[in-house]
């Protein structure tokens, strides 16, 4: 196991896509120290910025201690192994990851788990915007994987989601599950407006309150409970909405009936 600790506070962003179990695997400590990183526009090596320690356990895991808020692209494209961040994580953490696990014991910045294909990301703090959303202009969303957030998330989480599960124990911002086609998103507490806009498939489950519903959703039924994934199902009752009609979508939006009495008027259409 490798442990990295920043040698100082970073003023400018650090680009460190080399912090990745696949990269570290089968490298000696000296080779790891020589891996290239950039601080702003300066080309440096990993040991210029971090204290690198190795302990004897053979597991291919990396522990990052300290504030990694300015360190971008940690675990980018990782396929195996584990990264544990004891502190805040920077942008694009776990982008395009295809396996393995990332645990963030702190807050995660935007674009965490962007375009991921498989693997697990656990965030024991808040997450920023564009969690599990694709790159600009791309319609290739997250294809699979499991993301769990203990805190709240920002805006546009799970855009173009194609598969996988996102569980949020706190609040969610606007445009949750924008344009999603499959997969599941679960929000325990409050959810902002425009949830599920332009979605054409998949399901969003809102167990808490919702600020406002898109006009382009139509009520379908009331269900007593709903399954988030194979391991979890939530007790309702839930209003089930279909949408987004503007995109001829058949995505399902489950909204807690008890927590949202303002939506009662929809019942007349049932």
């Amino acid at each position: 196991m490798i442990t990295l600790t920043p040698l100082r506070n970073f003023d400018v962003p650090v680009h460190a896509s080399c912090i990745n179990p696949d990269e570290f695997k089968s490298k000696t400590l000296k080779e790891i120290a020589e891996l290239p990183v950039t601080e702003g526009n300066r080309n440096l090596t990993l040991s210029d910025l971090f204290k690198i320690e190795q302990d004897k356990t053979e597991t291919p895991s990396i522990t990052l201690n300290g504030d990694f808020k300015k360190v971008k692209r940690v675990g980018q494209g990782m396929k195996t192994g584990e990264i544990i961040i004891n502190g805040n994580a920077g942008m694009h953490t776990g982008e395009r990851m295809a396996g393995g696990k990332i645990v963030i014991n702190g807050n995660a910045d935007s674009w965490t788990g962007s375009e991921m294909k498989a693997g697990t990301i656990e965030i024991h703090g808040d997450a920023g915007d564009y969690l599990a959303s694709p790159y600009r202009g791309s319609g290739t969303g997250v294809k699979g994987g499991y993301i769990i957030v203990d805190g709240s998330v920002g805006n546009e989480v799970g855009c173009y989601l194609k598969g996988g599960v996102i569980k949020i124990k706190g609040n969610a911002g606007i445009f949750l599950g924008y344009h999603m086609t499959d997969g599941a998103i679960y929000v325990e507490k409050q959810c902002s407006s425009r949830t599920g806009a332009a979605m054409t498939g998949g399901k969003i489950i809102l167990a808490g309150t919702v600020t406002e519903l898109m006009p382009s959703f139509t009520i379908d039924s009331i269900k007593p409970k709903v399954k988030v994934d194979a391991t979890q199902s939530v007790a309702g009752p839930f209003y089930v909405f279909l949408g987004d009609l503007a995109d001829h979508g058949t995505g399902k939006l489950f909204v807690s009936k008890t927590n949202n009495p303002q939506l009662a008027f929809y019942e007349k259409y049932l």
């Binding site: 694709p134 790159y135 600009r136 202009g137 791309s138 290739t140």
Partner: peptide, 8 residues
């Protein structure tokens, strides 16, 4: 201009 996903 419209294809950043193609360039990157």
């Amino acid at each position: 201009l419209i294809r950043p996903e193609d360039h990157y």
